[in-house]
């Protein structure tokens, strides 16, 4: 599905990615973890072609993505901070994205799932952070693509919406999709993820299942395991 080879990226003097090698073959949920500034978002943006790597290659479904754009039809992406054009109404934004992607979409059920009907005619600047995130989720999940990338999907969500989100994610997984998630909420990761990739200072320090992570660090919870791996003990 995704194959990354020796990926390097530097922003100015700051070396963000230092030779990432990663291969994801099987469908399932993969959590990308790591402290702030470890290169999670840069990695994801490289896959999307928003950041152009200095060295290395990325292929999705056996084809290199360099200088290509059509492959993004096969990705559903949820950006970290929902930055939307403020002068648009929610309804217009959804219509616009549908028009731009020209793919089959199902926004109605998602809108009712997150109870967004009263906000449809409101401008995006007037929405609260949580509501914006719900709109963001609708925009991501209304399409049907084999690869799903979620950057901090839980931010700003209330418990009820969080349950809906988890249900959505598990539905996508049942469809046999590959789902990449970054999150700082370990409880959420423990609940949904099959595999964990741990990034530290732009390199992969751990790649395996949650149980392997716990065994390797002799910890009982993911939270402590991650803390242990960050401090460099038991690794």
């Amino acid at each position: 599905m995704i194959k990354i080879e020796r990926l390097h990226k530097k922003f100015g003097k700051n070396q963000v990615l230092r030779g990432i090698d990663l291969e994801i073959e099987k469908p399932g949920i993969i959590a990308v973890l790591g402290p702030n500034g470890s290169g999670k978002t840069t990695l994801i943006k490289s896959i999307l072609g928003m950041v152009i790597p200095d060295k290395g290659s990325i292929s999705i479904q056996e084809s290199l993505i360099k200088k290509k754009w059509r492959y993004r039809e096969r990705i559903q992406y949820l950006p970290q901070i929902a930055n939307f054009p403020g002068n648009l109404r929610v309804r217009e934004l959804i219509k616009m994205i549908k028009d731009l992607r020209q793919q089959e979409s199902d926004d109605k059920s998602l809108i009712s799932l997150f109870e967004l009907e009263p906000f449809l005619d409101k401008k995006l600047t007037t929405l609260s952070g949580g509501t914006k995130q719900k709109v963001n989720i609708v925009l991501t999940f209304m399409f049907n693509a084999p690869l799903v990338i979620l950057d901090e999907p839980t931010s700003g969500l209330d418990p009820l919406s969080l349950i809906s989100l988890k249900k959505l994610i598990s539905n996508e997984r049942k469809k046999g999709k590959t789902i990449l998630i970054t999150s700082h909420i370990m409880q959420f990761v423990e609940e949904v993820a099959d595999n964990v990739i741990y990034l530290l200072e732009g390199a992969i320090h751990f790649n395996g299942t949650i149980d392997e992570l716990k065994n390797r660090t002799n910890q009982t919870s993911v939270e402590h395991a991650v803390a242990a791996i960050t401090k460099g003990t038991n690794v």
């Binding site: 999307l48 072609g49 928003m50 754009w69 059509r70 492959y71 993004r72 039809e73 990705i75 992406y77 950006p79 930055n83 939307f84 054009p85 403020g86 994205i97 731009l100 992607r101």
Partner: peptide, 16 residues
Amino acid sequence: NSKEFTELLLAQPIRR
């Protein structure tokens, strides 16, 4: 002013 709009578009299947 349209930075957000641009970022939204960049993740879509559209040529840069």
